[in-house]
């Protein structure tokens, strides 16, 4: 991809790889994140999610491949002003007040001093820390530190916010708040790169997602594309002879649950043909419905396919 094309995207990577000595953390990551979308980056522990984020914010240098963030090659110093980043494991100077931590980050990001106050106030308000702004960070609970981390990531109205496991330390209320914050960001036109292994969370807020395993993307697309890729249907049928059932396997992989039969991997016009075949064999069809898989089912299935 040319740099000009990459400019219209929030993130674009091409065969991005990172090795630490002999350990391959990321092997050939290719993906695109559009502007103003919430992009979920899913994968089991050790899949290379955090490594990918670190490469994107310039904390580590790629061993191979290329990547652009907001139209500039990764690591570009000026582009970092337009980025917000919440690390997975981080700490702020415990002896500072929350407000001072935010001030420090305003200063480091080169924001005009006159804007600090309003910027800090709005970030604190958004994460719900306004009342604790003048308390020292060392007295904060893990959840409050996480909120502070989010506030830091939101400073200066970044065009892209990368959140690495933002809700791992939060209680259900906190998780809900984070989802609301992400929705607010999206409404503002900010792209959000959400790194998570909490499937329900991703399912609820992401526009598009990529599933990674062993350092590479194994599936990418909208939620519907990922979930519905294999065209699974459930059919409720009675009166079908046992040998007929086995013959239906030709349409797609068959899961026999007694009355309910689940077919995976049907061709586009496979459903009417399937029903016709069942009827021809003397089966009585009561229901045919697309099978709505949860992201969790799909995720586990993708990982299993990958291993085979």
């Amino acid at each position: 991809m040319e740099a000009a094309d990459a400019a219209s995207l929030a993130v674009h990577t091409q065969d991005l790889a990172k090795r630490y000595g002999k350990t391959v953390a990321l092997s050939g990551l290719t993906m695109s994140v559009r502007r103003a979308e919430v992009f979920g980056f899913l994968g089991p522990n050790g899949a290379g999610k955090t490594t990918a984020v670190k490469l994107l914010v310039g904390l580590a240098h790629p061993s191979a491949g290329e990547a652009w963030v907001l139209g500039a090659p990764v690591g570009d110093l000026q582009t970092r002003r337009r980025l917000g980043y919440l690390p997975e494991l981080f700490r702020y100077q415990g002896w500072m007040k929350a407000r001072e931590v935010l001030g420090l980050h305003c200063e480091l990001s080169g924001m005009a001093r006159s804007e600090w106050k309003a910027e800090i106030a709005s970030a604190l308000e958004l994460v719900g820390l306004s009342e604790r702004a003048d308390d020292k960070v060392e007295g904060f609970s893990k959840g409050m530190q996480q909120r502070l981390g989010l506030a830091v990531a939101l400073l200066g109205r970044p065009e892209l916010v990368l959140l690495d496991e933002p809700t791992s330390a939060l209680d259900p209320v906190g998780r809900h708040d984070v989802r609301e914050i992400i929705r607010t960001l999206k409404a503002r036109g900010t792209a959000v790169f959400l790194n998570s292994h909490l499937l329900s969370e991703v399912e609820q807020i992401c526009d598009r997602l990529a599933v990674v395993d062993h350092g590479r993307v194994i599936a990418t697309g909208t939620m519907a594309q990922i979930l519905g890729q294999d065209g699974a249907v459930r059919v409720r049928v009675t009166g079908l002879p046992a040998d007929g059932r086995a013959g239906l396997g030709a349409f797609g992989s068959l899961e026999d649950e007694g009355e309910w039969l689940t077919f995976r991997g049907l061709a586009t016009d496979g459903v009417p043909q399937l029903v016709a075949e069942i009827v021809r064999q003397g089966g009585r069809v009561y229901a045919v419905e697309p099978r709505h898989e949860t992201l969790e089912d799909r995720f586990l299935q993708l990982l299993k396919e990958q291993d085979q």
Partner: peptide, 14 residues
């Protein structure tokens, strides 16, 4: 070690 650097280095600072 503590993660303070993780928060500071992604800022526009060499």
């Amino acid at each position: 070690e503590s993660g303070i650097a993780l928060a500071i280095l992604p800022r526009p600072i060499r």
